[in-house]
């Protein structure tokens, strides 16, 4: 464990950012999995940013783009601000963009559903 910590701290920060961005994505991508069956986990539905702009129709390319963006932003932000602040900033950016799209959709269709 100690060795892993040493190894972690010894790798470039941007690579750690890619990994952390990927983990964030995977955790929230579970949302789509849980939406398949009767076990609807409301906390994923609420907190998964991909869910908002895709309420009307599933947009696979958008989800894929989120994955790429989260990893790239993770790399840039963690390199710039370190793990904690960097991943928080990249997460905020991802949420902001998705939320903006949700609002646009809401205005355009008068309902997100």
């Amino acid at each position: 464990m100690k060795q892993l910590a040493i190894l972690w701290l010894d790798t470039p920060r941007w690579a750690r950012g890619v990994f952390l961005g990927n983990i964030c994505y995977i955790v929230l991508a579970v949302d789509y999995f849980t939406r398949l069956g009767p076990r609807q986990y409301w906390f994923f539905t609420v907190w998964s940013p991909f869910f908002w702009p895709t309420m009307r129709t599933p947009m696979d390319s958008w989800i894929l783009l989120n994955h790429v963006a989260w990893c790239v932003l993770g790399a840039i932000c963690v390199e710039r601000w370190g793990e904690i602040k960097g991943i928080l900033v990249s997460t905020c950016l991802i949420y902001s963009v998705n939320f903006a799209l949700f609002v646009i959709q809401f205005i355009r269709f008068n309902s997100p559903f």
Partner: peptide
């Protein structure tokens, strides 16, 4: 059948 859905939306919607 569901494909492995770790990053995928569902097919029964």
């Amino acid at each position: 059948f569901l494909a492995f859905p770790i990053f995928q939306p569902g097919c029964f919607q």
